Amino acid sequence: MILAAGLGTRMRPLTEHTPKPLLEVGGKPLIVWHLQALRAAGIREVVINTAWLGDKLEAALGDGQRFGLKIHWSHEPAGQPLETAGGIVRALPLLGHEPFLLVNGDIWLRYHMTTLRTALAPGKQAHLVLVDNPAHNPAGDFGLQGIGAATADEHAVLMPKSADSAFTYAGLAVYCPSLFQGLSQGVRPLAPLLRDAIATGRASGEYFAGPWVDVGTPQRLHELDAAIRANDI
């Protein structure tokens, strides 16, 4: 599932007429980088949720055939995005009963997503990819126990952040649908569900050294585009 329902308020005026995932870096839209990475990882079906300018997203990407994928669309009210967990709950009928990969539509990274196909260990409901804290999130989001062993192929225990272990959630994860089943539809953030999963040992994580960019402002978009074109990232 690709999250593409945000309003893109920090990216205005660029997002007044263009949904943020369709903004381009390196000659192609942000969301196309994801679609190509998912296809390379052997994934064949993708759910995309939309809210703001969702019709333009669907018009641009269609059914996904030209990317070698089948895209399922989950449309949300344009004026009130449901937040991450709310969007997932709404899309559960499209996602099925098996674990699914989730990626934010407004990030850019070079991560081999094939490794995530087997990332969710027995008994776990969430596996998060974490990165070094960027300047706009210096305090981080979560901690990792045993970070020295946390690679793309090894799991670490996901913990609340602390002074000794604080990393930023990359917007890339694997979730089990059971984490969301039974929840009512509506506006629902993801963080409380993750905190509960961490407290009960149902979440794991891994550290990713990058490259990774949260493309949240016009300046970051411009800098990322320039870096890609100059082969500096």
Rank of each mutant, 00 (worst) to 15 (best):
A37V: 05
A37M: 14
A37D: 10
L38V: 10
L38D: 00
R39N: 11
R39C: 07
R39Y: 09
R39P: 05
A41Y: 03
A41N: 01
G42T: 13
G42C: 08
G42D: 05
R44Q: 12
R44H: 14
R44N: 12
R44F: 10
E45L: 08
E45Y: 04
V46N: 03
V46G: 03
V47P: 06
V47L: 04
I48H: 05
I48A: 03
I48S: 02
I48F: 10
N49T: 15
T50K: 03
W52G: 00
L53D: 03
G54F: 04
D55G: 15
K56S: 08
E58N: 03
E58K: 06
A60C: 08
G62V: 05
G64A: 04
G64E: 05
Q65A: 15
R66Q: 12
R66K: 14
L69K: 02
K70S: 15
K70L: 13
I71T: 07
I71F: 12
I71R: 05
H72G: 11
H72W: 13
S74V: 05
S74L: 04
P77Y: 15
G79I: 08
G79W: 10
P81T: 06
L82Y: 04
L82S: 03
L82T: 05
A85W: 00
A85F: 05
A85L: 06
A85S: 07
G86D: 06
G87W: 02
G87F: 05
V89C: 11
R90M: 10
A91P: 07
L92N: 07
P93V: 07
L94G: 03
L95H: 02
G96E: 12
H97N: 14
E98G: 01
E98V: 07
F100N: 01
F100I: 03
L101G: 02
L101V: 09
L102F: 10
N104C: 08
G105L: 06
G105C: 06
D106Y: 03
D106P: 00
I107W: 01
I107Q: 00
I107M: 00
W108A: 07
W108K: 01
L109M: 14
L109C: 11
L109K: 02
R110P: 01
R110V: 09
Y111P: 00
M113Q: 11
M113H: 14
T115C: 06
L116A: 04
T118E: 12
T118Q: 14
A119N: 06
A121S: 12
P122A: 06
K124A: 06
K124I: 13
K124V: 05
Q125S: 11
H127K: 10
H127Y: 13
V129R: 00
D132M: 10
N133M: 11
P134K: 07
P134C: 07
A135Y: 12
A135W: 13
A135T: 08
A135C: 10
H136Y: 14
N137S: 13
P138S: 09
P138F: 15
A139F: 13
A139P: 08
F142G: 01
F142L: 04
G143N: 07
L144Q: 08
L144I: 13
L144D: 01
Q145G: 01
Q145F: 13
G146R: 04
G146A: 09
I147T: 11
G148K: 08
G148E: 15
A150P: 03
T151G: 10
